[in-house]
């Protein structure tokens, strides 16, 4: 395999309480393999949790699962959460205020990862998050 061909892992997560933790265990192993430090690993895990929870709660999917993919690139880790719901308007940015109870998932993901993009349609949403190789601990 060429050094430039990303190594990929995919897993299926059933929409059920705490199942997001299964994905974080894989995320932890992958991130550690890429030499991310503990703080960075935790940031990746929390961003992934938020992405999966958003898919669980807001996708409106009749298919009771999400797909999670990890792609190890030379310079970054790519984490994808794919749901099979109804999509949403990704152009409308969340407007959050201090002590607001909900709506922080997207803000957290965007703060914890280097890049966050949504590819969304009435057939589902593909959340693509990237974390560049260690600049954090």
């Amino acid at each position: 395999m060429s050094a430039n061909v990303p190594k990929r892992f995919e897993l299926e997560i059933p929409i059920a309480c705490d199942k997001e933790l299964e994905a974080t265990k894989v995320a932890e192993r992958v991130a550690q393999e890429m030499q991310f430090g503990p703080d960075c690993v935790a940031e990746i895990k929390l961003a992934l949790i938020e992405g999966i929870i958003n898919a669980f709660e807001h996708s409106g999917s009749a298919i009771q699962k999400v797909l999670v993919e990890f792609a190890i690139h030379d310079e970054e880790l790519e984490v994808v959460v794919q749901d099979f719901g109804q999509g949403f308007d990704a152009s409308s940015k969340p407007n959050v205020r201090p002590l607001q109870r909900r709506g922080y998932g997207r803000v957290l993901m965007e703060s914890l990862m280097d890049e966050v993009k949504y590819f969304t349609s009435p057939q589902g949403t593909r959340l693509v998050m990237k974390k560049r190789r260690p600049k954090c601990a």
Binding site: D39, A42, E43, L46, V96, R97, P98, L99, Q100, Y104, V107, L108, S111, L112, A137
Partner: peptide, 17 residues
């Protein structure tokens, strides 16, 4: 707090209160 939790609280504004 672990750094990730401190960061989460800061992002979500808890540290103001």
């Amino acid at each position: 707090l672990l750094p990730i939790i401190a960061k989460t609280f800061k992002i979500m504004g808890l540290t103001q209160y």
